[in-house]
């Protein structure tokens, strides 16, 4: 009998459920989805309302607090939600422990690396010298 099968419901919530992460991961995925509902609509509406999508217009927009702050939150939340969501898909379809670890590790590395790169770019637009 495996650990999951012998555990109590409380034990599963604490980390022995099918995700091996308990309820925290599940809840964070929902909370980031609620945030992205607002931030995602903000992004689309902003792109529609901007007078142009040329570089100067976008840079000016992302230098302003009303552009930078929501975009910063969007990048962080989107990458966290992406890592959480892809983990659910991987855990549902990749059952071999070694492959599962490798794939989830790759997603985590790429997600954090990509997120750092996106944030670096955003900070450079907002605070870097005009190029």
């Amino acid at each position: 009998m495996s650990a999951q099968e012998s555990s109590t419901p409380l034990g599963q919530v604490r980390g022995l459920g099918s995700s091996h992460h308990g309820g925290g991961h599940w809840l964070r995925e929902r909370l980031t989805s609620a945030a992205l509902l607002l931030l995602g609509i903000w992004l689309i509406v902003s792109l529609v309302l901007l007078p142009s999508l040329d570089r100067a217009t976008l840079a000016e927009w992302l230098k302003s607090a009303s552009g930078f702050v929501p975009m910063f939150l969007f990048v962080v939340t989107a990458f966290v939600h992406a890592i959480d969501g892809l983990k659910v898909v991987v855990d549902d379809y990749v059952h071999d422990a070694g492959n599962n670890l490798a794939l989830n590790g790759l997603i985590l590395f790429a997600g954090i690396g990509g997120g750092a790169w996106a944030l670096f770019s955003l900070l450079k637009i907002a605070f870097g010298a005009a190029a």
Partner: peptide
């Protein structure tokens, strides 16, 4: 974002 930051 990188392209906006990197230049024209």
């Amino acid at each position: 974002l990188w392209a906006i930051a990197a230049g024209g």
